[in-house]
Write a protein that binds this DNA or RNA. Structure first.
Length: 304
DNA sequence: CTATCTGTTCTGAC
DNA sequence: TGTCAGAACAGATA
């Protein structure tokens, strides 16, 4: 579930709770999930967090970093000092913490604990030298992304740059147009191709195409200049909204506080099969499968 | 009970 | 080389 806005919300939370804490020990329940030598991160102090597409990076002061991808059902839950009240966990924290789906536990100094839950066990945590983060194979394949990895201030808090270090390349309108022009694949497939651009997943791809009034099956290289611009702006717009509302808790996503995001209340078209289109208020939203994923669109506003 | 659906990325086949 | 179905996994829903 976690796409760019969800991962960014988690990053902001983790930075808040973890920065300045040292990792005192690591409990690994799943060696498929935790890759690399956990001894390298013990004793390290968390200095910063970064995000590359849907990948989260936790930098330590000992030249090592923790890379992690939550895939569909990964969750980071922090328990310890500085948590705002109420501290109750959402029922979407699968199995609780620690619970049957807790695969890794990071014990921190000053009484903090970071739990990694992952019901479907697709996610991973990887220990990498900080100097090798950007050349790590997964990171290296990622395309440029909206905001270039630094997110616009979404209302509260300081404008949250991905602290220090380097981030992903910026997806400009011109780069976006070039990407679209190179393939006849459906526009939605291109938006979700992480090697073409980083961060956009199923929910935000659906909403961006609806906002731009473009059919998801439309061949990417067939879009006119005005449509390219509308789609580019729509992507920025829905991602900003996602961050503003703290992500979308449609399924397993929760924040490090164990709370749900709110963007699911503001879905433009995702999940609205059979409901009246929010724009034309005439047609019912249809659902098809495109590239193996649920795809929602208005047959009137988003004609092929 | 079984079949289907979920949503991200990797693998293998064409 | 690009493209795409199926797999990885576990649970909710029909």
């Amino acid at each position: 579930m976690p796409e760019l806005p969800e991962v960014e919300t988690i990053r902001i939370g983790l930075e808040k709770y973890l920065a300045g804490h040292k990792i005192t020990s690591v409990e690994i329940k799943s060696h498929k999930t935790f890759q690399g030598d956990e001894k390298k991160i013990i004793g390290g102090e968390i200095t910063a967090t970064r995000r590359f597409g849907k990948v989260l990076v936790i930098d330590l002061d000992n030249d090592y970093s923790i890379l992690t991808h939550l895939k569909l059902t990964g969750q980071y839950i922090y328990r310890g000092p500085n948590l705002p009240s109420p501290k109750e966990l959402s029922s979407k924290v699968t199995g609780g913490v620690p619970g049957p789906h807790t695969l890794v536990i990071f014990n921190l100094d000053k009484g903090g604990i970071l739990y990694y839950n992952d019901l479907r066990r697709f996610g991973w945590i990887r220990v990498v030298k900080t100097s090798e983060v950007e050349t790590e194979p997964f990171i290296k394949k990622l395309g440029p992304e909206p905001f270039g990895g630094s997110t616009p201030s979404a209302g509260s808090g300081p404008s949250s740059l991905t602290t220090q270090g380097h981030g992903p390349k910026l997806l400009t309108l011109n780069i976006f147009r070039q990407i679209l022009s190179k393939t006849s694949r459906p526009a939605k497939i291109v938006l979700m191709d992480q090697t073409k651009m980083g961060g956009v997943g199923n929910i935000y791809a659906n909403d961006a195409l609806w906002l731009a009034a473009i059919n998801p099956r439309r061949p990417a290289n067939n879009l006119q200049l005005e449509e390219q611009k509308k789609l580019y702006n729509a992507i920025l717009s829905v991602l900003k909204a996602g961050i503003k509302w703290g992500g979308a808790s449609d399924a397993a996503y929760v924040t490090p506080e164990g709370k749900e995001g709110l963007y699911q209340k503001y879905f433009l078209v995702y999940g609205r099969k059979g409901e009246l289109c929010l724009r034309c208020k005439k047609a019912k939203i249809e659902k098809i499968v495109l590239g193996g994923r649920g795809t929602y669109f208005c047959p009137v506003c988003q004609k092929l």
